[in-house]
Simulated assay, not measured.
Amino acid sequence: GKSTVVAALLRTLPPSSGSLHADGRDVRALHADDVRAGIAWCGPWAHLFDSTLRANLALAAPGATDDDLVAALRRVALGSWFDALPEGLDTAVGAHGGAVSGGERQRLGVARALLADRPILVLDEPTAHLDAATGAALAAEILAATADRTALLVTHRPEQTPGVPRLDLGRSRSPV
Results as ranks from 00 to 15, higher is better:
Asp90Tyr: 06
Thr146Ser: 11
Ala8Leu: 05
Asp83Ser: 06
Leu9Pro: 13
Arg166Val: 15
Leu167Cys: 13
Leu48Lys: 15
Leu138Arg: 13
Gln106Leu: 08
Leu57Ala: 08
Gly38Asn: 02
Gly24Cys: 03
Gln106Asn: 09
Gly135Thr: 02
Ser51Val: 08
Leu30Met: 09
Ile142Arg: 04
Pro162His: 06
Ala58Ser: 11
Gly163Met: 04
Asp148His: 02
Ala72Val: 13
Arg75Glu: 01
Ala8Gln: 00
Ala29Asp: 15
Ala128Glu: 06
Gly98Arg: 04
Arg118Glu: 00
Ala113Gln: 08
Leu121Glu: 13
Arg36Leu: 01
Gly94Ile: 01
Thr127Ala: 02
Ala77Asn: 13
Gly170Ala: 10
Leu153Gln: 07
Arg157Pro: 09
Val5Tyr: 10
Leu57Asn: 15
Cys42Leu: 08
Gly94Arg: 06
Ala22Arg: 09
Leu121Asn: 07
Ala133Asn: 13
Ser80Ile: 12
Glu87Pro: 03
Ala139Lys: 09
Val154Gln: 08
Gly18Leu: 01
Arg25Val: 02
Leu169Lys: 07
Asp68Lys: 04
Ala84Glu: 03
Phe49Lys: 10
Glu87Cys: 04
Ala128Lys: 10
Gly102Cys: 07
Asp66His: 12
Ser51Phe: 06
Ala72Thr: 10
Thr146Met: 12
Ser3Ile: 11
Leu114Asn: 11
Asp34Asn: 13
Ala145Phe: 04
Val110Trp: 09
Ala32Val: 02
Ala77Ile: 01
Arg75Gln: 06
Gly97Ser: 12
Val176Ala: 15
His47Leu: 04
His47Lys: 06
Val110Ala: 08
Ala46Leu: 03
Phe82Ala: 09
His156Ile: 05
Thr4Gln: 07
Asp67Val: 11
His156Leu: 07
Ala72Met: 10
Leu85Asn: 12
Pro158Glu: 00
Ile142Val: 04
Arg173Trp: 01
Ala136Leu: 02
Arg173Gln: 11
Gly97Arg: 14
Thr12Leu: 00
Gly109Met: 14
Ala72Tyr: 13
Asp33Tyr: 00
Ala84Val: 11
Leu121Trp: 03
Ala40Arg: 00
Asn56Ser: 13
Val6Pro: 00
Asp117Val: 01
Leu48Gln: 14
Ala77Tyr: 05
Val100Leu: 06
Gly103Trp: 11
Asp83Met: 01
Val93Tyr: 11
Ala64Gly: 11
Gly24Gln: 05
Gly38His: 00
Ala137Asp: 09
His156Val: 02
His96Ala: 15
Arg118Thr: 00
Leu115Ile: 12
Arg11Phe: 02
Leu48Gly: 03
Gly163Val: 02
Gly97Ala: 04
Ala84Asn: 04
Ala40Met: 03
Ala61Lys: 14
Ala128Thr: 15
Leu10Ala: 00
Leu89Ser: 10
Val93Phe: 11
Ala113Arg: 05
Thr52His: 10
Ala84Ser: 12
Leu153Asp: 12
Ala136Lys: 14
Pro158Ser: 07
Leu85Asp: 13
Ser19His: 05
